[in-house]
Design a protein around this nucleic acid. Structure first.
Lengths: 148, 148
DNA sequence: CCTATCTTGTTTGTGCACAAACGAATGTGT
DNA sequence: ACACATTCGTTTGTGCACAAACAAGATAGG
């Protein structure tokens, strides 16, 4: 049977609002856990990317994290100022640069290993539900990704 | 069979990252649709609340939308400046105030009726998937709500 | 009363998200 | 070689999110 228009409108509100609130809440969950590392959540994501593979060019990081260059640019500067990463020239293209964790940045990885378990524990949700959530979110991202 | 510890660690990062990206993408989907109404997404949520029930006290709006007073306060001022809402004194408590849509604010509701269908259409996701997503998000919000 | 405490909204400061305009380097067509 | 377009990161301006400090009104205890 068909859903009424009102149901659709209601559902839409709930989904979008729930998405925004859930995102803020989960990031808020990270905050006290990341605070001892001196990282915000977006900064943590940049470090994760560089811990996984380095060097990465500025544009590669932006694409990986789906961050606007205008957002990433000052963020990178703060991470440099914290002494966690540094930029190196890329041979053959003076427009861009590559990012690499410093010694301190690599050392921070040890502490960061404790972050995911702490978050999962505080979330207290069964794994199946997290998997289901991730799959639904992936569908939304695919349906909305401006990159296509 | 059992999941490896590495999988679990990755799952946490995937869920949180997907949550942040999906939230940003969906709000970005609203942006061009709300632009003709002269509203940002948070402003749209405030208007939705007031279209549903008015007057609402400042604190009630903050609680409904799960917004920090420090975030809501300037947002309200912008909506007043746009001529869409106005504040009225509350008898018996001079600390707070009540919010009500102006004539222009009420008129805007007509245009706003077209917003949810436009969003759902652009999302292009089957209803079942939206329902599943909403259920998972609700679980996350319950697990993370600081208000508890 | 009247003082101490609690509520409630505002202000200030930092960081993120994004649009628009910009400037410098690279690439392309002729 | 040269003019033109494209790519790439930065800068500026606006708005949101949140912590911390604040101020004014309400409330409770003595």
């Amino acid at each position: 049977m068909t859903q009424s228009t009102e149901d659709l409108l209601e559902l839409d509100q709930q989904v979008c609002f729930a998405l925004a609130v859930a995102s803020r809440n989960v990031i808020a969950l990270y905050r006290p856990i990341l605070e001892p590392l001196g990282l915000t959540h977006p900064q943590y994501l940049v470090m994760l990317a560089l811990w996984g593979k380095a060097p990465l060019r500025f544009g590669e990081v932006a694409e990986l994290l789906r961050l606007d260059p205008a957002t990433l640019s000052p963020l990178i500067k703060r991470l440099e100022q914290s002494g966690l990463i540094e930029r190196h020239p890329v041979a053959g293209d003076e427009r861009t640069f590559a990012l690499v964790p410093t010694e301190a940045g690599r050392a921070l990885r040890e502490q960061a290993l404790g972050v995911p378990p702490a978050v999962i524990e505080q979330l207290g949700m069964p794994i199946e539900r997290l998997v289901a959530l991730r799959d639904e979110l992936t569908a939304v991202i695919d349906a909305t990704d401006p990159v296509k």
